[in-house]
């Protein structure tokens, strides 16, 4: 039991980091579902685009000798903005090309288009990187300050990387909260999510708001991609699949279409995963190892959905009829 106690702060930190990562990605699924009632299965590739933009910017800075010269905070800000902008634009382009033409079609059709877009984007990134760098497995160059740790007392040390993920994610969530709840476009997003036809009658340009929603959701995914790269270092074009699936799960867990739900779901899933990875083996005296963490996380998901099919904070997303 001593070991269990000793690793607790570390596990908690890992879980929180993972949770914020899932939360940021989950926002993209849930916001798009909110306005279109459709799951954008290519969102995992939007996330990967962010991770690749991050690594490319860093590699270019390194090659030009600027990586060490520039202030790390400045580099991180540039990285995040570049990742967010390109992922956001990619999401907008995706909506325009792969989803909007299918707006009136049966529900299965855009879903298949999304899966196709997901495959296309994976191999497109692979193609570009193979041409450009001769490999599509890239490693983030290290930024010295991120490799440091801060100690709190004797037992607990916190990597600067983790603080970066948490602080950035909190800033993003706050910005998103203000955008959605305190601005006119935020009102428009919420109105379209409730009833697109009536929103149009209020003078809201529904297609523009849908594109904006893709941009905002996509840029949250892009930021998560950059943070993922900075934290775990390795990226490849297929790296989005598992985090994307988990974030989608988190969105469903919290109640799909519900923005606070996506954050809560991400956090619950991240913590469950981290605790399962570290404690399953201790609690079962080695019978189940860390490799069962996903099984455990998904069993909990299934249980929650059996008892609360709409998710933890779920409600009816769109009112039909009167």
């Amino acid at each position: 039991m001593d070991l269990a106690l000793a690793i607790f702060p570390q596990v908690l930190m890992d879980g929180v980091v993972l949770g914020f990562m899932y939360a940021l990605i989950a926002l993209g699924y849930t916001m798009v579902y909110g306005v279109l009632e459709f799951i954008n299965f290519a969102h995992s590739e939007i996330f990967v685009i962010g991770a690749f933009v991050g690594v490319e910017v860093l590699l270019l800075l390194e090659a030009s000798g600027n990586l060490a010269a520039l202030h790390p905070a400045f580099i991180l800000v540039v990285l995040l903005f570049a990742g967010m902008a390109l992922s956001g634009l990619a999401a907008v382009g995706l909506e325009r090309v792969a989803y909007r033409p299918l707006r009136g079609a049966p529900r299965l059709v855009p879903l298949i288009s999304a899966i196709g877009a997901s495959f296309f984007l994976q191999d497109f990134i692979r193609f570009i990187e193979s041409l450009w760098r001769n490999t599509f497995y890239l490693t983030y160059p290290s930024i010295d300050v991120l490799e440091k740790t801060i100690s709190l007392g004797e037992a607990v040390t916190i990597p600067v990387k983790s603080i970066l993920v948490i602080a950035t994610a909190l800033a993003m969530l706050l910005a998103l909260y203000l955008l959605v709840n305190r601005t006119k476009v935020g009102t428009a997003i919420r109105a379209v999510a409730q009833d697109p036809d009536t929103a149009a009658l209020m003078g809201i340009h529904v297609n523009r708001i849908i594109a904006l929603t893709f941009f905002v959701g996509g840029s949250m995914g892009g930021a998560a991609g950059v943070l993922f790269g900075l934290h775990y270092s390795l990226v490849n074009p297929y790296a989005g699949f598992i985090p994307g699936l988990k974030a989608f799960t988190a969105a469903v867990l919290g109640g799909i279409g519900n923005i606070p739900g996506a954050v809560l779901g991400g956090m619950v899933l991240g913590l469950m995963e981290a605790f399962a990875a570290s404690y399953l083996s201790i609690l079962t005296s080695g019978a189940f190892g860390a490799e069962y963490k996903d099984v455990f996380a998904f069993v909990v998901l299934i249980l929650i959905l059996i008892f609360r099919p709409k998710g933890i904070l779920g409600e009816k997303v769109r009112e039909e009829g009167v």
Binding site: K184, T187, A188, R190, Q194, T198, L201, M202
Partner: peptide, 17 residues
């Protein structure tokens, strides 16, 4: 077709969008 998850005030404000 009022917005069910907007308050009365928010609904009226949406009208003036």
């Amino acid at each position: 077709k009022i917005f069910p998850r907007f308050t009365v005030l928010e609904n009226l404000k949406a009208g003036a969008y």
